[in-house]
């Protein structure tokens, strides 16, 4: 009986384990491994790559040109994350304190863009921001109304409206990244704030603290693990963003992902692209490890260990 059961459970184990393990190994780890190997390789002719163990690709990645793009990517992702935090925090707070009837709808409203195709959302921004887009159209209308008002009181009309260049620059990239990543920030913040015991905030008010003071000495410290989560969850995809800088950015707003893409699709320098990919991946892992480290420290702190 016992023997039969143990064979059965061993069988169950392998039946459960093999398919996902094989899939991850063959269709995920091996491809990554190949890229990793390529990053130590050299180009041979037009398509061949020989893996010679060279570090030349990494050395090249640390040339000022690429370092600058890396730094710029980190900066853009950082600004995006900060803006998402500033915009998203009040949103999360308002949803947490919304009535039972409203809360699911507000959450749905935050999630819906998250489920909508990234390409479409970026495209929608192009339509809004381009020189003949809605923003410029609206501004032109205001400008012309002002001009008309001036003529009405007998003054010289304003000069004709010059459309603002809102697209194909760094502003558009940050705008687009914030637009796309805001739900990534709001949802973890919501989860963290929702877990917070309200009587702690009430106690703080009761003891004489104002709302801002309560926010910074009670809410933020206690919601810190959630805030860190939100920051990392926003920062990581923003750092590796390809589509937004590609479609909304100008020639000087390339991010690291665009450079990688070019190595593989246009410049045909796979080893160098592979090295850049792995550097991006390491940066991502560092961010995630940082999150694990910070939230563990906080959890231990909260438990007074």
């Amino acid at each position: 009986m016992a023997a039969r059961e143990s064979t059965e459970s061993r069988l169950a184990f392998w039946a459960t384990a093999l398919p996902p393990l094989l899939w991850v190994a063959v269709f995920f780890l091996i491809p990554l491994g190949v890229i990793w190997a390529y990053s130590f390789g050299e180009n041979l002719g037009l398509t061949g790559v020989s893996i010679s163990g060279t570090f030349a690709n990494y050395a090249r990645a640390f040339e000022p040109l690429y370092l600058q793009i890396f730094a710029k990517s980190v900066f853009v992702a950082g600004v995006t994350t900060l803006l998402c935090l500033i915009i998203g925090f009040p949103v999360a707070l308002a949803i947490v304190f919304a009535s039972e009837r409203w809360r699911p709808w507000l959450l749905l409203l935050v999630m819906l863009p998250f489920w909508t195709n990234l390409l479409i959302r970026t495209y929608a921004l192009i339509a809004v921001l381009r020189t003949e887009g809605y923003v410029n159209y609206g501004l032109a209308w205001i400008w012309e109304s002002a001009s008309w008002l001036k003529t009405l009181v007998g003054l010289e009309p304003l000069a004709p409206y010059e459309p603002l260049q809102l697209l194909y620059n760094n502003f558009a990239v940050v705008f687009g990244l914030v637009y796309v990543h805001l739900p990534f920030m709001v949802l973890p913040l919501y989860a963290a704030l929702d877990r917070l015991d309200r009587s702690l905030m009430e106690a703080s008010l009761d003891l004489g603290a104002g709302h801002l003071r309560t926010l910074f000495s009670i809410v933020v410290p206690l919601a810190l693990p959630g805030i860190i989560s939100g920051v990392i969850i926003t920062f990581v995809p923003a750092l590796g963003a390809y589509l937004t800088p590609d479609l909304l950015g100008g020639p000087d707003s390339q991010m690291i992902a665009n450079v990688i893409e070019r190595q593989f699709k246009k410049a045909n320098d796979w080893p160098f692209g592979a090295a850049l990919s792995f550097l991006l991946m390491y940066a991502t892992f560092i961010a995630i490890a940082l999150r694990a480290y910070l939230s563990r420290g906080k959890a231990a702190d909260a438990h007074g260990i």
């Binding site: 015991d197 009587s199 702690l200 106690a203 703080s204 008010l205 009761d206 410290p221 206690l222």
Partner: peptide
């Protein structure tokens, strides 16, 4: 007069002792 300016103080049911 808002809560934080009132001359009363409260002991909450859950005590609401700040854990941090």
């Amino acid at each position: 007069i808002p809560a934080n300016k009132r001359p009363v103080n409260m002991v909450f049911q859950s005590y609401a002792v700040f854990p941090h």
